[in-house]
Simulated scan of single mutants.
Amino acid sequence: MSNFRQVDRETGFLLPPSVDEWLPERHLARFVVEVIERLDLSAMVKAYRGSGSASYHPSVLLGLLVYGYATRVFSSRQLERATYDSVAFRFIAANDHPDHDTIATFRRRFLKEIEGLFVQVLMLAREAGVLKLGTVALDGTKVHANASRHSALSYEHASKLEAQLKAEVKELMALAEAADCADVPDGMSVPEELARREQRLARIAAAKAKIEARAKERFAREQADHEAKMTAREENAKKTGRKPGGRPPQPPQPPTAGPGPKDQVNLTDE
Score class of each variant (00 low, 15 high):
residue 211 I to Q: 06
residue 211 I to A: 09
residue 212 E to C: 09
residue 212 E to W: 00
residue 212 E to K: 08
residue 212 E to D: 11
residue 212 E to N: 11
residue 213 A to H: 06
residue 213 A to P: 00
residue 213 A to G: 05
residue 213 A to F: 05
residue 213 A to Y: 03
residue 214 R to Y: 08
residue 215 A to Y: 03
residue 215 A to P: 06
residue 217 E to C: 09
residue 218 R to T: 06
residue 218 R to H: 13
residue 218 R to N: 12
residue 219 F to P: 04
residue 219 F to Q: 05
residue 220 A to Q: 15
residue 220 A to L: 15
residue 221 R to D: 14
residue 222 E to K: 15
residue 223 Q to G: 03
residue 223 Q to T: 14
residue 223 Q to A: 15
residue 224 A to L: 11
residue 224 A to W: 09
residue 224 A to T: 10
residue 225 D to S: 12
residue 225 D to E: 12
residue 225 D to W: 01
residue 225 D to G: 10
residue 226 H to R: 04
residue 226 H to E: 01
residue 226 H to W: 15
residue 226 H to P: 01
residue 227 E to K: 15
residue 227 E to T: 12
residue 227 E to W: 15
residue 227 E to R: 15
residue 228 A to K: 14
residue 228 A to I: 09
residue 229 K to P: 01
residue 229 K to G: 02
residue 229 K to S: 11
residue 229 K to L: 14
residue 230 M to A: 11
residue 231 T to L: 12
residue 231 T to M: 11
residue 232 A to R: 15
residue 233 R to Q: 07
residue 233 R to F: 02
residue 233 R to V: 10
residue 234 E to A: 14
residue 234 E to H: 07
residue 234 E to V: 08
residue 235 E to C: 09
residue 236 N to S: 10
residue 237 A to Y: 04
residue 237 A to D: 01
residue 238 K to V: 05
residue 239 K to C: 06
residue 240 T to N: 03
residue 240 T to Y: 07
residue 240 T to G: 03
residue 241 G to M: 01
residue 241 G to N: 04
residue 242 R to F: 03
residue 242 R to E: 11
residue 242 R to A: 06
residue 242 R to D: 05
residue 243 K to D: 00
residue 243 K to V: 00
residue 244 P to C: 00
residue 244 P to S: 01
residue 244 P to K: 01
residue 244 P to T: 00
residue 245 G to R: 03
residue 245 G to I: 02
residue 245 G to N: 05
residue 245 G to K: 05
residue 245 G to Q: 05
residue 246 G to E: 05
residue 246 G to T: 02
residue 247 R to W: 00
residue 248 P to E: 03
residue 248 P to G: 10
residue 248 P to I: 00
residue 248 P to K: 09
residue 249 P to Y: 07
residue 249 P to I: 03
residue 249 P to H: 02
residue 249 P to Q: 01
residue 250 Q to I: 07
residue 250 Q to H: 12
residue 250 Q to F: 14
residue 251 P to Q: 07
residue 251 P to R: 12
residue 251 P to C: 03
residue 252 P to N: 10
residue 252 P to Y: 06
residue 253 Q to M: 10
residue 253 Q to G: 12
residue 253 Q to D: 14
residue 253 Q to T: 11
residue 254 P to N: 02
residue 254 P to T: 04
residue 254 P to W: 13
residue 254 P to H: 06
residue 255 P to K: 01
residue 255 P to W: 01
residue 255 P to T: 02
residue 255 P to D: 02
residue 255 P to L: 00
residue 255 P to Q: 01
residue 256 T to I: 11
residue 257 A to C: 07
residue 257 A to P: 04
residue 257 A to L: 06
residue 257 A to D: 06
residue 257 A to K: 14
residue 258 G to H: 07
residue 258 G to R: 06
residue 258 G to L: 09
residue 259 P to D: 09
residue 259 P to N: 11
residue 260 G to L: 13
residue 260 G to C: 09
residue 261 P to S: 10
residue 262 K to I: 12
residue 262 K to H: 13
residue 262 K to S: 08
residue 263 D to T: 08
residue 263 D to F: 03
residue 264 Q to W: 10
residue 264 Q to H: 12
residue 265 V to H: 13
